[in-house]
Design a protein around this nucleic acid. Sequence first.
DNA 1: TATGAATGAGCATTCATTCAT
DNA 2: GATGAATGAATGCTCATTCAT
Lengths: 202, 202, 202, 202
Amino acid sequence: MAFSPKIDIRRKILDTARQLLVEKGITNVSIRMIASKVGCSVGTIYFYFENKDSLVHSLIEEGFEKLIGIQEDVAATNQDPCTRLKEVCRYYIQFGIDNPEYYEIMFMLHSDRMSRYPAEKYRRAFKSLGMVTKALVEGREQGDLMVKDADMETQLIWCHMHGIVSLILSKRIHRSVDHTKMIELALEQIVETRRHPDMKVS
Amino acid sequence: MAFSPKIDIRRKILDTARQLLVEKGITNVSIRMIASKVGCSVGTIYFYFENKDSLVHSLIEEGFEKLIGIQEDVAATNQDPCTRLKEVCRYYIQFGIDNPEYYEIMFMLHSDRMSRYPAEKYRRAFKSLGMVTKALVEGREQGDLMVKDADMETQLIWCHMHGIVSLILSKRIHRSVDHTKMIELALEQIVETRRHPDMKVS
Amino acid sequence: MAFSPKIDIRRKILDTARQLLVEKGITNVSIRMIASKVGCSVGTIYFYFENKDSLVHSLIEEGFEKLIGIQEDVAATNQDPCTRLKEVCRYYIQFGIDNPEYYEIMFMLHSDRMSRYPAEKYRRAFKSLGMVTKALVEGREQGDLMVKDADMETQLIWCHMHGIVSLILSKRIHRSVDHTKMIELALEQIVETRRHPDMKVS
Amino acid sequence: MAFSPKIDIRRKILDTARQLLVEKGITNVSIRMIASKVGCSVGTIYFYFENKDSLVHSLIEEGFEKLIGIQEDVAATNQDPCTRLKEVCRYYIQFGIDNPEYYEIMFMLHSDRMSRYPAEKYRRAFKSLGMVTKALVEGREQGDLMVKDADMETQLIWCHMHGIVSLILSKRIHRSVDHTKMIELALEQIVETRRHPDMKVS
DNA sequence: TATGAATGAGCATTCATTCAT
DNA sequence: GATGAATGAATGCTCATTCAT
């Protein structure tokens, strides 16, 4: 028994849009292009989505759900704050690399376009970062980490991760550098820079 | 003696384009808009620039020249590799924040669009990073820094800086966090993470 | 006992359409808009009406019924032809002002659109004018009015009334002029211009 | 020697638009239709006119200029206020019948659309009516006419004329009635209703 | 040098209508 | 009876680009 075609086509539109997004960037993807690639009429897209923005916003929300889902799993299976910090970060980066289409609209949109997405929705983005903050605070409480301003450190870690993802996605990292090794090094630095001196092996 | 008007108008086009770029993002700036703001005809723009891409490319080149100029000055006035590293990084970040229009087209363009810019030109970008590598290597030679793979570390530092600049430019850093302090903290971490253990105060 | 919902919904469609018509004008009212305001699906409207034209035609017919109903009442309660003429005219004008949505589609539609409405139906419109003609003829027979060509005079009176209604509805009458007083003056002129000289007070 | 083609095409657009307007009514005339009938591209129309509204507004202005021009001529060649009143009215009606496309957009537009035309421009419409008022006032001063409120009477005369023109244009006048004779009768009534009793032959 | 005129393809969006269920 | 899904054509408008002058 097949799934209801009603759901099928909405999904197909979303998936096709995502796919085109990676190739061309959001501004260069038109409703017509999506329709023709889906194999439906333009009107059909407008039956499922109020307008182009709302289609993109659906994608953004999906992206956040996926990212947060992944990170919650990771957080749940890592007790130790330091390890948890490292793993949450690892999966953030991995998510970006594996889902360029989601990552681009979630974090790489021009602020002009971003402003058209209800700000309230963007707050969900911080659930993801919340897990970073939590790991930092718990690490500090256990005496493992040395963190003065957990919020600022969170933003800084985000910057680090975002820089890695976005430069990889835009193919700007020099080809002589191995991405996997670079990411591993970054994760280590993220944790070690904040490690409490007493905890370090001299 | 007046400057040749030929140069004047080319400059004015470039400047106007840059200005519009910050507000609207590149895809939303049209040749017509530039022309009407400059006060010339569309044709005039096509007299000075082959097409829209080539106008943007001129801007990109200008941006790189400006960035490298700044960093060369900074590098020249800082003998100590560690300090030099910090200052070169500081000015990279500062450049991005002060020149969003340049930074956006230099480093935040969708890779699809980037591919239309002669790859060879992009190699200049690495002059800027070359100074980072040089500082790392010299720091290592002097025993101040512990750097296994200088190229990889360079890319990683770039990621860190780029993440900071691009999240600030796209207004995504949480408003509770002070940008200046965050940048200062980042610069410290960039250097300290790579500091040789023997050089650290216990 | 409730009314059959079948009738209820048909009525609701008609009423909603009328309502939207005043605000936006016929070409700017879409089936979708009606459906969404009624709270039913587009298909439902097509169940009750063959197409948009036929919906409008139903409205036109309703309008004529209403107008004629009013005028028949008025005619029945006014024996004297001159008074009757005046009152029939007064209520025509009043009807137009009170029911802009009906009046607009009955008398202000572009002739192109009008041609799609079965001409035969339009003849009913003349029942309304028939009462004007009747009053004119009777007034002449009684020696009160001086009317050479009753049909032509009927059309002329119609023109006068229609001009008043349509300029008021399209908000073109200068704001310094009081509508009620203007209408009263017009009604007087309509009768007096045709009053037999012998009947006038010298 | 031919006229500059620059002027030619703008004119051709205006003329074609006018032509299509009569046939279909304004809402049913699209830029594409005009372009294809003119034989130019859509873009060309947008080169000469900012948007559809502004094209229509140009037409409206042309219409007013034409109407006022005609009436000024008529007014200049008729000294006697009563005759002048009659002739100004005659030419108003004639103008409407001869130029349905102008008349429709000048006086028969849905108020919704009208509101998009700068109100200030519409005041020109009253120059035309101003000549009616002037004739009424002068006729009263000379003792020929009996006019209590010249402004109200002006509006009423306008209603009368507009009713005639608009019902003729929308082909609603009964076919048994001769338009020319009906207009002549109307003009007589317009003047005679307002004639001072002392001036009437008993 | 610089411009005004023109193009054709493209855009997001809306529409009246149809039809299987 | 009523609906949800779909269509295809149309709408107003903008774009990068060209080219004769």
